[in-house]
C-alpha cells in the first residue's frame, strides 16, 4: 500500500513548526501505524535526513506512550485501540493521512509528534494514590468488595494515561482521565480514607494545569483506546460535590 503523509515537524518547543509531506511506499497492510512510520524513518535516515520523532514503548496497547492524532482522531479511525495497534489495513490505498501531535496548552510540545504529558503525572501526584502504612498485609477477604464495584473499578483503572481524551476533546479537557483515576479508587475500600480530599486535590491540580472544561461532547469516550465511559465523569461530578460539601476538616 502507498500513502501520502502530512506530518507535523517541529525541531524544538520554541521552533515554529510546519507540516511536511512524505510518501510511504510499499507498506504492508499488516504493519502497525508505528511500523509504517519506522519504514518512513529508515528511508529518511538513509537519505541523511532527520527522522520523525514520535513516542512509543510497549507497542502492545498497554503503556499509553504512542500518541498520534491521525486524520483528526486520536489513535486513528479504529475504536478501542492505541496507535500501535492501528493497522494500515484500516486505511485506503493511496489515502492522505494527517499526523499531528496532541494539541493542548497543558501538553507542551517537545519535538515533532512528542508532547510532555507530565500534567497527568502531577494530577495523579495530587491524589491518585492510596496511603498505606507498612506492616503485615491483612487477609484479602477482610476487605469485601462487591463484584459489580470491582468490575467498574477495573473499567476505570484500564486508563493508560495516553491523553487521547484531552486530544479528542474540543475543549482540551482532562475530565475523563481525572474521572477514571478518581473513580477507580472511590469504588474500592482502600480508596475510602482519602476519598474526599483526593477528588478535591486532583480537580484543583487539573485546573491548575490549564486543561479546558467538560461540556459533554463525549468525544473522549469515543477516542479512548480503553473505551472508558463518560459515566465516570458523572461519578467525578458526584465525588467532587461530596468532596467539597463534606470537606473532612480542611478549610
Amino acid at each position: 500500500m502507498n500513502f501520502t503523509l502530512h506530518i507535523w515537524r517541529q525541531k524544538s518547543p520554541t521552533d515554529a513548526g510546519r507540516t511536511v509531506t512524505y510518501d510511504a511506499r510499499d507498506i504492508s497492510p499488516d504493519m502497525s501505524f508505528l511500523e509504517m512510520l519506522d519504514v518512513v524513518n529508515a528511508e529518511l535516515i538513509e537519505k541523511g535526513q532527520e527522522p520523525i520523532a514520535f513516542d512509543s514503548d510497549c507497542r502492545e496497547g498497554i503503556c499509553g506512550s504512542c500518541c498520534l492524532m491521525i486524520n483528526g482522531i486520536p489513535h486513528g479511525p479504529e475504536r478501542g485501540v492505541a496507535t500501535c495497534q492501528t493497522y494500515m489495513r484500516v486505511f485506503r490505498d493511496g489515502q492522505e493521512i494527517y499526523i499531528e501531535p496532541w494539541r493542548a496548552r497543558a501538553f507542551p510540545l517537545l519535538r515533532d509528534l512528542i508532547v510532555d504529558r507530565g500534567a497527568f503525572d502531577r494530577i495523579v501526584q495530587a491524589g491518585g494514590y492510596v496511603s498505606v502504612n507498612t506492616g503485615g498485609a491483612q487477609d484479602g477477604n477482610c476487605l469485601p468488595v462487591a463484584k459489580t464495584d470491582a468490575e467498574r473499578a477495573m473499567d476505570a483503572a484500564a486508563c493508560i494515561g495516553c491523553g487521547a481524551c484531552v486530544a479528542a476533546c474540543k475543549n482540551a479537557s482532562a475530565m475523563l482521565f481525572t474521572a477514571a483515576k478518581v473513580s477507580h479508587l472511590a469504588l474500592l475500600p482502600q480508596g475510602q480514607p482519602e476519598r474526599r480530599q483526593r477528588v478535591r486535590n486532583m480537580v484543583e491540580q487539573m485546573d491548575r494545569e490549564g486543561f479546558g472544561t467538560c461540556t459533554n461532547y463525549y468525544e473522549c469516550e469515543a477516542a479512548c483506546p480503553k473505551e472508558i465511559s463518560v459515566q465516570f465523569i458523572a461519578q467525578l461530578n458526584r465525588e467532587y460535590l461530596a468532596g467539597c460539601l463534606e470537606g473532612d476538616g480542611e478549610k
Partner: peptide
Amino acid sequence: TWQENQSARPIPYAHEATIQASWASR
C-alpha cells in the same frame, strides 16, 4: 467556560474531525 476552553488549545488541529459529538453540543 468558553474563554477557558478557547485558551486550553491555543494551536488548532490542521485536520479537524468529530467522532460522535452532536451538532447541538458543538
